[in-house]
């Protein structure tokens, strides 16, 4: 009995669009359309809408991050410190590889 009622209701719902009339837009659609087309022809509007796209914004952020990463990595490719290490200093002492500055040369005696 309940199923019969349910099936009847479903059939009623499925037939509810019978005799439907076409929906019409608000008046003066063409005027609004023309205004929109004029607005979208503006170069600056085109540019802002292009930049505001999520894909473009995300690509720009990625590009900036990649450039930053490249600058950091290329400025110090080996990852070593520029300061001389202990073994290098010991070798320099042993072979007298001492760099003199201009002051030392001027004060040296023959």
């Amino acid at each position: 009995m309940e199923d019969e009622f349910l099936n009847k209701k479903i059939d009623e719902v499925l037939q509810s669009t019978d005799g439907i009339k076409r929906a019409a837009p608000r008046p003066f659609l063409f005027t609004r359309l023309e205004a929109r087309m004029q607005n979208e022809r503006n170069v600056w509007n085109k540019l802002t809408s292009f930049v505001a796209r999520p894909v473009v914004a995300f690509a720009c952020i990625c590009f900036v991050l990649i450039i930053n990463a490249m600058v950091i990595l290329l400025s110090n490719p080996s990852g070593n410190s520029l300061a001389p290490q202990g073994s290098e200093l010991a070798t320099a002492d042993e072979y007298s590889q001492v760099s003199y500055n201009l002051y030392d040369f001027e004060n040296s005696k023959p």
Binding site: E12, V13, S16, T17, D18, I20, R22, A23, A24
Partner: peptide, 19 residues
């Protein structure tokens, strides 16, 4: 509620559109 639906079918049609 579709504007072209007759008054007596309005409720049923709204359920149909939702489905």
């Amino acid at each position: 509620f579709h504007p072209g639906i007759s008054m007596e079918n309005k409720e049923n049609a709204a359920v149909l559109f939702k489905a």
